[in-house]
Simulated assay, not measured.
Amino acid sequence: MNQQQAGDKWFQDSAARAIHEQQLEQVERFNGRAAMLGIVIGVLTEAITGQGIVHQIGLGPLVDGYAACSAKYLPFCF
């Protein structure tokens, strides 16, 4: 590999790394905004319906079962 080819490979590698970092930054920004939007929607729905976020996503029986464990009503209580 001569000097010109080595320089070209270095330039291509550094350009590819810069493009990857830029794409990663855009994806992470989108994920953060989507998460914030989801939390806001969950809190607004909780305010409207009176059901917590855990109940909204279908995990309410698990939380309710855990609360009932103090009375030893469920078989998986410790």
Rank of each mutant, 00 (worst) to 15 (best):
G42F: 02
A67R: 14
Q23E: 13
A34S: 05
N2Q: 01
Y73G: 03
G58L: 01
I19V: 10
G58Y: 09
A6K: 11
M36K: 10
A71K: 03
K72A: 14
F11T: 13
W10L: 15
R17H: 00
E25G: 03
P75N: 10
Q51H: 10
V54N: 02
L24R: 02
A35E: 13
I57A: 09
Y66M: 15
F78T: 12
E46W: 00
I39H: 09
A15Q: 14
G60H: 04
A6I: 14
N31E: 12
A68D: 00
C69N: 07
A71N: 04
P75L: 07
A71E: 05
T49N: 08
L24I: 05
G38D: 13
T45A: 15
Q26H: 11
Q51T: 11
L74W: 01
E21F: 08
N2C: 09
G50D: 06
V63R: 08
R29M: 05
Q5V: 06
I53N: 08
V43Q: 13
E21L: 11
D64A: 12
A68S: 07
S70E: 10
A47R: 09
F30I: 13
E28K: 08
G32H: 12
A71I: 01
A35M: 09
E46K: 01
F78Y: 11
F78D: 10
G50S: 03
L37C: 05
I48M: 00
I39A: 04
E25W: 06
L24K: 08
K72Y: 11
G52Q: 03
A68R: 05
A68N: 05
N31P: 02
M36N: 12
L59A: 14
M1F: 01
A34I: 08
L37K: 11
V63D: 02
W10E: 10
H20C: 01
F11N: 15
I48P: 03
V43I: 13
A34P: 01
D13R: 15
Q26G: 03
W10A: 13
I53H: 11
V27Q: 09
R17W: 05
A68P: 00
S14C: 03
A47H: 06
L62G: 01
Q23Y: 03
G60R: 00
Y73E: 14
E25D: 12
Q12R: 15
Q23D: 06
F30H: 14
P75E: 01
L62V: 12
T49K: 06
Q4I: 10
Q12V: 13
L37I: 02
A15Y: 12
A16F: 01
C69W: 02
L59H: 11
L44F: 15
I53Y: 07
Q51L: 12
G38E: 14
F78R: 15
A35I: 12
A6Y: 08
R33N: 13
G38K: 10
E28L: 15
A15K: 13
I53D: 00
A67E: 01
G7E: 10
Q22I: 03
Q51A: 10
Q4W: 09
V63L: 15
P61R: 05
F76R: 01
E21N: 14
A47W: 04
C69P: 04
S14M: 11
D8I: 12
Q23S: 04
Q4D: 13
V27K: 04
A67V: 04
